[in-house]
Amino acid sequence: MMKKMFYPVAGLLIMGASAFTLITAQSWKPTEDYSVKFTSEDPSGVFRGLKGDINFDEKDLANSKFDVSIDVATINTGNGMKNTHAKSAQWLDAEKYPVIRFTSSSISAVGAGYEAKGTLEMHGVKKDFVMPFTFQKGDNGGIFTSGFSINRLDFDVNKAEPAHGAAVLKVDLSVPVTR
């Protein structure tokens, strides 16, 4: 009886797993010309080291998900001294908290764009975060763009000196992707 059931059950399992892959949202890979910029009165700069999973399908938002991170040690303000300070324990503490990570829990369409709700983790502090973004689809890829503000004090980044440099930084993301 068990032997008779083995192949039908295995067949159903394979079919089930195959069907699950079909409903997984489209997976995208960022190309090298992405940019993660932050601007304020002082400082301004860029991050590199974007990694993670970008699963996004305009027609299947329920199964779309972002789990992306950037490498804190790649910060570049254009000034060597500032880079060293930014990576130090006083500011982002790149040694202890090597990445800034965003994990979405839901994505919904809002106006002409989208909103990804989830958790932003920076400097060891996790906060609920809403990231607005747009997606422009091309032939073999597309481009994600987003703009939002972050208050470094919310993430305990040099909380001891709230007036040392700007507290609120504007972040602009531009992430071209391919399949």
Binding site: S44, N76, G78, N79, G80, N83
Partner: peptide, 17 residues
């Protein structure tokens, strides 16, 4: 060279001075 802000596409500004 210590105070200058280099264009952001230039890597390793720490080595500029």
């Amino acid at each position: 060279p210590i105070a200058i802000h280099l264009p952001l596409d230039i890597q390793f500004p720490e080595l500029f001075p």
